[in-house]
């Protein structure tokens, strides 16, 4: 029982990171209709910046702020400088460019900083706190959950309550009609990339202290699991990314705890397969339109 409670609570914290990363994939998919295969590589560059800033200044918070800013800038630069120039009539072109970007970024990081793991310290203790003798989550896990909740709340407010969010949603759903409504659609696409990569960078930064450390591939597994979560949730749905991220996190934690870490990826794949068989467009896919 104790073990179950512990695995569930750590699974929630891992799931929150997954949900954030899945949300970043959903944001960029909604804005630009691309599955960004370069998300992990783009997310890890700001983490290098954060680690450099933190080790130079001693401030974790300054590093975190720099990671968010770098992620936002990187998103804007990649969209304006690269993705906008890719032919839009075929999704394959964007995917190939993204894979090329992964190779360039990861090779560049390995050349600049070396391919080894660099240990990254968490700003809070990672030792689980006990409640009545039962180990629950660590202070760092609590911090991760809190940050994820705040960011998701802020994004939900932005998309649901503000005029900017309204314009971004409209541009994502119906670009041509939105232009007829006076929305500057290209600007909204750039903003989507900006928000997406900043969110992904935050997720990667939260993940790194819980794993082996920082290396150019540190977010690759996160991307794979978060992509599975985004698809389970229905690629188009922020709420779906949130729910499926938590679900995948808890599932992976339970399988790792009761079976082995090696069994977690197949378990996630199994969940993905079952969901796609039952609901091919994901759990939270948009409803069908009235045609009559």
């Amino acid at each position: 029982m104790e073990r179950l409670v512990f695995l569930l609570s750590t699974g929630l914290a891992r799931g929150a990171v997954l949900a954030l990363f899945a949300l970043s994939l959903v944001i960029v998919y909604r804005a630009a209709r691309v599955v960004n295969f370069a998300q992990a590589a783009l997310a890890i560059v700001p983490v290098y910046v954060a680690v450099a800033v933190t080790s130079a200044t001693g401030s974790y918070w300054l590093g975190l702020a720099c990671a968010l800013i770098t992620g936002a800038l990187l998103g804007a630069v990649v969209e304006r400088g690269l993705m906008r120039r890719v032919p839009q009539d075929n999704p394959l072109a964007g995917i190939i460019v993204a894979i090329g970007l992964v190779m360039v970024l990861q090779a560049g990081l390995a050349i600049a900083f070396g391919p080894d793991h660099r240990p990254v310290h968490a700003p809070f203790s990672q030792r689980p706190l006990g409640v009545g003798g039962v180990p629950l989550m660590s202070p760092y896990d609590l911090f991760v959950l809190l940050v994820a909740a705040v960011v998701m709340g802020a994004l939900a407010w932005l998309f649901g309550r503000t005029s900017l969010g309204l314009r971004m949603r409209a541009a994502a759903f119906a670009p041509e009609t939105s232009r007829l409504l006076g929305v500057r659609v290209p600007r909204m696409v750039t903003l989507g990339w900006t928000l997406s990569i900043a969110t992904a960078a935050l997720a990667a930064l939260l993940l790194v202290p819980t794993g082996l450390g920082l290396d150019p591939h540190a977010a690759d597994v996160l991307f794979v699991n978060a992509f599975a979560a985004a698809v389970i949730g229905g690629l188009d749905s922020p709420a779906g990314a949130l729910a499926a991220g938590l679900l995948v996190g808890v599932l992976a934690s339970l399988v790792t705890g009761y079976a082995s870490a090696a069994a977690a990826p197949p378990a996630v794949l199994g969940l993905l397969t079952v969901v796609l068989l039952v609901r091919p467009h994901g759990l939270f896919a948009a409803r069908e339109a009235r045609t009559a």
Partner: peptide, 14 residues
Amino acid sequence: GVVAELTVAENLRL
């Protein structure tokens, strides 16, 4: 020419 995913009020506001 309306954004079908948005509500009537949202379309007009937009």
